Simulated assay, not measured.
Amino acid sequence: MADMNNMNKTFKTLDDFLGTHFIYTYDNGWEYEWYAKNDHTVDYRIHGGMVAGRWVTDQKADIVMLTEGIYKISWTEPTGTDVALDFLPNEGKMHGTIFFPKWVEEHPEITVTYQNEHIDVMHDAREKYATYPKLVVPEFAKITYMGEAGQNNDDVISEEPYDAMPDDIRNGKYYDENYKRLNR
């Protein structure tokens, strides 16, 4: 199995960033997996923290390069959660700020699902429960994996997270040499 983890890649342009698959661990211990699917869409899985087990595909996002090798991504989820991520892949780090509505802080289990199949549930909870004050979680993270998945690869985030998944990905046991999921 080829080593998919390309931690030595140098990022200069927006095209260098698009199609990249990341795993990172926030300083608070929360582990996330995130994929720059194209210039307006992201997919992600959450492996640790208050909403571990949540996964989302085709989330519309604003993706820009601030300056060479530094990228900002922001979006609002159907839950009402706002997210702003700053990636510095050449330094192996990123910073994320997550703005959780009050209802997600109080009922995180509602969001722990494949969101795309439960948008109505997210909208209902957003209307039913309090949204303010928001829980603001700003954290630095260490990037532990960077894979060149290519753009619009639906195999990158295509199943719910399981306990050993980040290690399987980092150890080259999850994707084949074409960045397609093994063990379908």
Rank of each mutant, 00 (worst) to 15 (best):
P78L: 06
A2G: 03
Y114A: 09
E77Y: 04
T13H: 09
V121C: 08
E77R: 00
I143F: 02
N171M: 06
T57D: 03
L14N: 00
N8H: 10
I98C: 11
P161H: 11
H107E: 11
Y26V: 08
T113V: 12
R54E: 15
Y44P: 02
H123N: 12
Q115M: 08
H107N: 14
V137S: 13
K60L: 07
A2S: 14
E148S: 10
F22R: 06
M94I: 10
M65Q: 14
K134R: 15
F100A: 10
T97E: 08
P108H: 09
T144P: 01
D124C: 10
Y162D: 07
V112L: 06
G150T: 12
F99V: 10
M65A: 04
K12C: 05
N38A: 04
Y179H: 14
F22K: 04
V56W: 01
E159F: 12
W34E: 09
Y179S: 11
M94A: 10
T76E: 12
N183W: 03
I23N: 04
G49S: 13
D168E: 13
F22N: 02
L66Y: 01
A84P: 07
D86Y: 05
I119L: 15
T79W: 03
E159S: 14
N152C: 03
L18K: 00
V83L: 02
D155S: 12
I46Y: 05
N38T: 09
H95W: 07
G48I: 07
H118Y: 09
N116E: 14
M122T: 10
I63K: 01
M146P: 06
Q59S: 11
K173W: 06
T20N: 05
P89D: 02
M1I: 05
E139T: 15
T57A: 09
L182A: 13
I98S: 11
D120V: 06
A149Y: 02
D167C: 03
E148T: 13
M94F: 06
M50R: 14
D163A: 04
K37D: 01
A61R: 03
K60V: 09
V156H: 02
H123L: 14
P133C: 15
N28E: 15
Q151K: 10
I169K: 02
I143G: 08
K37V: 03
G19H: 01
T97Q: 07
I169A: 06
I63M: 01
T111D: 04
I110F: 00
S74G: 14
D163P: 08
R181W: 01
F17K: 02
W30I: 06
V104L: 06
F11W: 08
G96P: 01
L182D: 13
G96H: 00
Y129M: 12
K12W: 00
L88Y: 03
Y71H: 08
M4L: 14
P161I: 04
K180S: 11
G147T: 08
N28R: 03
E160C: 08
K9L: 05
K37P: 05
V104A: 04
T67Y: 07
G147A: 05
T13C: 04
A2L: 07
K37H: 07
E177S: 14
V51A: 08
K37Y: 04
H123A: 12
A61Y: 00
Y174K: 13
V42N: 05
E91W: 02
D58E: 13
Y179T: 10
P133E: 15
G96L: 03
N171H: 11
K12P: 05
Y174V: 13
Y174G: 07
Q59V: 09
M65G: 06
A2R: 04
G19T: 06
